[in-house]
Nucleic acid binder design. Structure first.
Length: 428
RNA sequence: GGAGAGAUGGCCGAGUCGGCUGAAGGCGCUCGCCUGCUAAGCGAGUGUGGGGUUAACGCUCCAUCGAGGGUUCGAAUCCCUCUCUCUCCGCCA
């Protein structure tokens, strides 16, 4: 959410930013409603002032034993007028709030203009895609052949787009989670957290999933609870409505959670394999920083995520999202895309964003500077470090062998009891 | 699920037969003084959001004592609903 004062004073810049994003948010009525709102607010405040003054006078008169009936009946009328104005004001505030809550973040000046993902500049490519002297198979075929993935049975249990891992596959998924968390905690200074996987609508609104993107979420029937689509939601909300001390910043958190997404509107896309599931695992990095450091922190966070791919020896590239491809709450986003040999293309495996004060304002996350009065909104950032299911898929495809087996990346072997290769065996 | 207790400023904690309490006191923090340094001591200041005004410092008004609603001229204080926390019982991994 943007600050109402900012919108008021920079209405053309805001409109321009919406255009660059290709967002259809309607701020045409903002100025008019805002003015009306302030006019009424003024009236109310004057009446309330009158009421406060006279009420004190009434108290004084009564204590002196004087008759205050005429004041009381006047105030009875004032109270009624206040109430009428308050109802009117609430209507305007609701409208203003609706406009503000649906306004996306303003892209940072370093974000290039563009329509969609085709306009995202590549920042760097790391690693060289391997050449295979046999026909490369998609990861779902590899996984099913090895007996470590079973989409058919998963569909029986639940439905389409749910994963079921067996044996060395289940173990590798778990190993990836541990490997990533240990790396970020041990080498990058993050604090491990294990948050709730279900959150309330307030938390969802704070990070920007609600109200605009409700159809992407799984909601618990009859309750104000939602399954998290990313750990970003519960972890960012850890400090909801808190005033933090500048000396304690920055906070770095890493959290493993499953993620649940309805994937409404993606019918027919990535129907096979682990790329697009209703439930998948992800290790998420979240930062709370001061405004002046947040862009350096974004670069560092991005580097932390890329390190996972480097250690796993997976080729990838990093792209900077253009204005038209960014998420609602983000001011700047990098995507990391891993090489998928069977698709002969790069696929998103991490998304690292700086939200500046957008989420902090909604969530009321502020900090105090030493020697300075008042509080200030801090900046929140997050990024996948990494999406585990897609990492799993990338390993199967990049490390597949002619005989159908899959080499386990060296960095992962300590987490798999030293297993070097996943082969067709009965009890792995 | 049943019974009870509670929710106040960065933190702790007063305040209920409604009215000079935006809120005592303490801690913390900031600034100043003082002690050779440290510790202690002394003095002053110190919530948040919004409106008006100002070039700015500031001044002023309104709101805010878990959330929402009600009673009243007036509510932190009375009533209702909800949320959360704690204690006991039941149930349960």
């Amino acid at each position: 959410m943007l600050e109402i004062k900012y919108v008021r004073q920079n209405i053309s810049q805001v409109r321009d930013a919406m255009d660059r994003r290709g967002d259809t948010a309607n701020i045409d009525t903002f100025e008019e409603i805002d003015q009306e709102r302030r006019k009424i607010l003024n009236e109310i405040e004057q009446l309330r002032h009158r009421r406060n003054v006279v009420s004190d006078e009434i108290a004084a008169m009564k204590s002196r034993g004087e008759d205050a009936d005429s004041f009381i009946s006047e105030m009875r009328e004032v109270a009624a007028r206040i109430k009428a104005f308050e109802i009117e004001l609430a209507g305007y505030e609701e409208k203003i709030q609706e406009i503000l809550i649906n306004l996306p973040n303003i892209p940072h000046e370093s974000v290039p203009f563009g329509q969609d993902e085709n306009d995202n500049p590549v920042v760097r490519e790391v690693g060289v895609p391997q050449t295979f002297d046999f026909e490369v198979l998609p990861h779902w075929t590899i996984g099913e052949n090895l007996g470590i993935l079973d989409f058919e049975r998963a569909a029986k249990i639940t439905g389409a787009r749910f994963p079921l891992y067996f044996g060395a596959g289940a173990r590798m998924e778990r190993a990836l989670i541990s490997f990533m968390i240990d790396l970020h905690v041990g080498s990058h200074g993050y604090t491990e957290t294990l948050p709730p996987f279900i959150v309330n609508s307030r938390s969802m609104t704070n990070t920007g999933q609600l109200p605009k993107f409700a159809e992407d979420l799984f909601k618990l029937e009859g309750r104000d609870y939602y399954m998290i689509p990313t750990a970003e939601v519960p972890v960012t909300n850890i400090h909801q409505q808190e005033i933090l001390d500048e000396n304690d910043l920055p906070f770095y958190y890493v959290a493993y959670t499953p993620c649940f997404r309805s994937e409404a509107g993606s019918y027919g896309k990535d129907t096979r394999g682990l790329i697009r599931q209703h439930q998948f695992n992800k290790v998420e990095l979240v930062k709370f920083t001061t405004p002046e450091t947040s862009y350096q922190e974004l670069e560092d966070l991005l580097d932390n995520a890329e390190t996972v791919l480097k250690l796993l020896e997976l080729p990838y590239r990093t792209v900077l999202l253009c204005t038209g491809d960014m998420g609602f709450a983000s001011a700047k986003t990098y995507d990391i895309e891993v090489w998928m040999p069977a698709q002969n293309r790069y696929r998103e495996i991490s998304s690292c964003s700086n939200f500046e004060s957008f989420q902090a304002r909604r969530a009321g996350i502020r900090f105090k500077r030493k020697g300075q009065k008042g509080t200030q909104l801090l900046h929140t950032l997050n990024g996948s470090g990494l999406a585990v299911g897609r990492t799993f898929a990338a390993i199967l495809e990049n490390f597949q062998q002619a005989d159908g087996s899959v080499i386990v990346p060296e960095a992962l072997r300590p987490y798999m009891g030293g297993l070097q290769k996943i082969e067709m065996t009965r009890n792995q």
